[in-house]
Amino acid sequence: MSIDATEVIPAIRRKEKDALGSLYDEYSDIVYTILLHSLKNENLAKEGLLKTFQKAWSTALQYDLKTDDLFTWLMTHTRATAKEIYLQHDGTIPQDTSHDLTRVKLPSSTIDSNFQEALDSVLISGESVDDTAKRFNLPLGTLKTRIRFGVNNLRKNLNPESGSFSGISAIALLIICLS
């Protein structure tokens, strides 16, 4: 990870805009991707992006440097923002995006397709666990198990530190992307 919470959060608390800029540089693509998948509307996703980082700015005092994690903290803000925007529009948001929101299907040697589907719904599309379980017609416990196993698959087959795949998984993904 290239950004350290013990440096950036105290700086944001001191109202240093550059610190929030660093946080934005690190995570804005993830936040925007999730908001766009959740809302499927570019204007509202951009509005959500600004709101999410404004929340980070305004709630930095509440961040617990001992236990909190930047990614988790921003995910909580991102999901909360998406839900707020959704409620503000009474759940009827017109789809308006030129981006292809189809996620790359990873090879089964990296992650089981059922597990990826569950992860994509909750993590990327920002759907609630209950809604995802209903949509897939799965018991809640089964969905949670799929997500947990999916993360285990990723942990074993992704190399988060380098941000790349290991060995065969990388080659397989490359072939899929090229095809």
């Binding site: 990870m1 804005s28 693509d29 993830i30 925007y32 991707t33 999730i34 766009l36 570019e42 951009k46 992006l49 990614f71 981006h99 996620r103 790359v104 990873l106 992860l119 993590l123 990327i124 993360v151 990723l154 942990r155 992704l158 190399n159 988060p160 530190e161 941000g163």
Partner: peptide, 15 residues
């Protein structure tokens, strides 16, 4: 770390 790496596999550029 795993979820971040996974999410970054396919992100959309911010405006």
């Amino acid at each position: 770390e795993s979820l971040q790496a996974y999410t970054r596999l396919s992100t959309i550029a911010v405006p």
